[in-house]
């Protein structure tokens, strides 16, 4: 019955059941942000970036990108990449730059909140990130003077230092 019903409706399908045809990430964060890759072609590669060096790739590295990284079950180096906020910030900025820019211009929004978290700029007691958001709005032009996530990240680091915001 399954096959029968399947065949009946088979002509309806022409799209992709998977989200996208993922490309190869190479290995590690550098290979991702060094190229101007469109997110939809490389969604799985973000995982390569964030899990590279952790044992997580054993479990979920099913997509093509992971197999490009040598041993899928490479020994764990806890926190080597995922725990490194700096790397995670770069990836986050790379894949959310348009929304982060819009939120920063508005002075609020969940994308700027996510970045505040990654910079450790949210008050853990109150949940407030207003200082970070205000700074992002005030310094919008200089913060987003590039579409390169690494440059934007460096701009943020410099601005946070200059404004002496309580982050870390």
């Amino acid at each position: 019955m399954k096959i029968l019903t399947s065949l009946i409706l088979s002509v309806m399908l022409s799209g992709s059941a998977a989200a996208a045809d993922y490309g190869m990430a190479g290995c590690g964060l550098g290979s991702i942000v060094a190229h101007e890759l469109h997110w939809s072609d490389n969604m799985a590669q973000i995982f390569v970036a964030t899990s590279n060096g952790t044992a997580g790739s054993q479990t979920f590295g099913i997509t093509s990108g992971t197999s490009n990284c040598g041993s899928a079950a490479s020994p764990s180096v806890r926190g080597k990449v995922l725990g490194q906020k700096k790397a995670e910030r770069t990836v986050y900025l790379h894949y959310n730059l348009a929304q982060v820019r819009a939120d920063a211009a508005r002075g609020d929004g969940e994308y700027i909140a996510g970045l505040a978290d990654l910079f450790g700029c949210r008050n853990q007691l109150t949940g407030s990130y207003v200082g970070f958001a205000s700074m992002s709005q005030r310094r919008h032009e200089s913060l987003f003077n590039s579409n390169d996530a690494k440059v934007v990240q460096a701009n943020f680091e410099r601005a946070l230092s200059q404004d002496n915001l309580a982050c870390g």
Binding site: I3, A17, A20, F47, G56, Y92, G114
Partner: peptide, 24 residues
């Protein structure tokens, strides 16, 4: 189309940051 409805494809799991699915 034929493969999709007749079980010829393998499905796999993936783990990724949630923001990627939100973006998609």
């Amino acid at each position: 189309a034929a493969y999709g409805v007749s079980g010829r494809f393998f499905g796999g799991f993936s783990l990724m940051p949630y923001y990627l699915k939100v973006q998609e």
